[in-house]
């Protein structure tokens, strides 16, 4: 599973290289773009994901035949928090669409920083969309495991749960960095 995670690190690594290169080229534009993101939703979503990860870690820790009910509920809870994340993300996307910030579909931004801002939003949309895709896969995994664990928990399921949990935490880690790169720059000026 860790080998797989190494693969994923490099997948996002390519994006992050692109981010740094362009942030270096357009520091002002990236700060401006960042100021147009929804920091409230972003922060809320980070908290949601951290909590969801916590629930999954909890479930892994206490997994045993005696605790199937509670493990199931923890996993369902984590999956629901994942859905909350996706829903908030949807709201965020639609607001950005209303503000004409979606490159390629409807992008209008006046002023000398337009290029940098557009590049920032391209990165924003690609990175968050790929992340959201990973979230959806993760939610499916959690729900599947919740159903299986309810029926007959065995050591094999424990291994499966372990792998799914690792994946979920990894998606969380990716978000931690995306949050720092997307929402935080340019807030202080």
């Amino acid at each position: 599973m860790w080998v797989f995670i190494a693969t994923e690190v490099l997948l996002f690594g390519g994006l992050i290289l692109a981010y740094f290169v362009y942030r270096h080229a357009f520091p002002q534009g990236f700060a401006e773009g960042s100021r147009h993101t929804e920091i409230v939703i972003g922060t809320a979503n980070t908290a949601v994901l951290l909590t969801s990860s916590f629930l999954v870690a909890w479930a892994v820790e206490i997994f045993s035949p005696a605790t199937t009910r509670i493990v199931t509920w923890l996993l369902v809870g984590a999956a629901c928090l994942g859905l909350v994340f996706i829903a908030l993300k949807g709201i965020e996307y639609s607001r950005e669409y209303d503000e004409h910030l979606v490159p390629g579909i409807d992008f209008q931004f006046a002023g000398p920083l337009a290029n940098g801002v557009q590049l920032f939003f391209i990165f924003y949309f690609i990175a968050t969309a790929i992340h959201a895709l990973h979230m959806l896969i993760g939610i499916c995994l959690l729900v599947t495991l919740a159903t299986i664990c309810r029926r007959a928990p065995t050591t094999r399921h424990h291994t499966a749960l372990h792998s799914a949990a690792l994946y979920w935490h990894f998606v969380d880690v990716v978000w931690i960095f995306l949050f720092a790169l997307i929402y935080l720059p340019g807030r202080s000026s």
Binding site: W2, I5, A6, T7, V9, L10, G13, G14, I16
Partner: peptide
């Protein structure tokens, strides 16, 4: 393996 992922990210 976890380190390898980070190391190669560093190279990139």
């Amino acid at each position: 393996f976890a380190g390898a992922g980070l190391f190669w990210l560093g190279i990139l």
